[in-house]
Amino acid sequence: MALRVTFVAAAGSSSLLAERFEDVRPLDQAGWHEVERAAHELLPLAAADLRYCSPSPRSRATGEGLGYAPLVQLALRDCDMGRWRGLTLGEAMAREPGAVDAWLADPWATPYGGESLPAFIGRVGGWLDTRPADGDCAVVAVAEPSVIRAALVYVLKAPPATYWSIDVRSLSTISVAGRAGRWSLRLDGARTQPTRA
């Protein structure tokens, strides 16, 4: 019997360059439009046996907007970025360029005084490993892109630095299946036809 967890990336609340560490801003108008456009495609996931979300305002709003009525999971919160909380990467770089370089070079580094990347990955993986697995169970979890990247690194048992090589776009989905300590990545067929440039 397999547990299947489908992650849905929260709708964006700003451009990627304006993304903030531990962003607590609500979903903006552009984000709500993203949710409206994707709702038809993502609504079937509301039939999951269990529905969760990260505690961030945009994850909760995305889950509610998609009709999931998700339960907030503190273990799915963003990485604790200490004194960099609320800053963009550019702002952190302007204030502490050496610290940002050290953080990007060493996954264990915490020059901001918060959680290390491996600790963050372990926390998210621990959440996965404690999901109920009675029979075939479908779970949907709306989460910040950073949380989904951490989950993928955990599932693939990849080195922590792999985290920086995973791009998670808003309202994208990815599924993992298995049970505690034995997860696999599931890539399903596209739900919509790709647009041509």
Rank of each mutant, 00 (worst) to 15 (best):
S15F: 15
P26Q: 14
V24P: 14
R25H: 13
S14V: 10
V8Q: 00
E34A: 07
Q29N: 10
L16I: 07
R25G: 05
L27F: 04
R37Q: 07
G12M: 10
H40E: 13
E22Y: 09
L45S: 00
V8A: 00
L16A: 15
V35D: 00
V35T: 01
A9E: 00
G12H: 07
L43F: 08
R25Y: 06
S14T: 14
H33I: 08
E19V: 13
L17R: 15
S14P: 11
A10W: 06
V35Y: 07
A9T: 01
P26L: 09
L42N: 00
A30E: 14
A18R: 11
E41W: 00
L27W: 10
E36D: 13
P44H: 02
F7P: 13
R25E: 07
D23K: 08
E41R: 01
G31Q: 10
F7G: 06
A11W: 06
V24F: 07
R20P: 08
W32D: 02
V35I: 06
E22V: 14
S15R: 15
A30P: 09
R20L: 05
A39P: 08
E36F: 12
P44S: 02
S13T: 14
P44G: 01
R20N: 03
D23N: 03
S13C: 06
L42W: 01
P44M: 02
Q29A: 15
P26E: 04
E19L: 08
A18W: 09
A10L: 01
F7K: 02
L17V: 13
V24I: 07
E19M: 13
R25N: 13
L16H: 11
L45W: 05
P44T: 02
V24R: 15
V8L: 01
E41K: 00
A30C: 12
D28R: 12
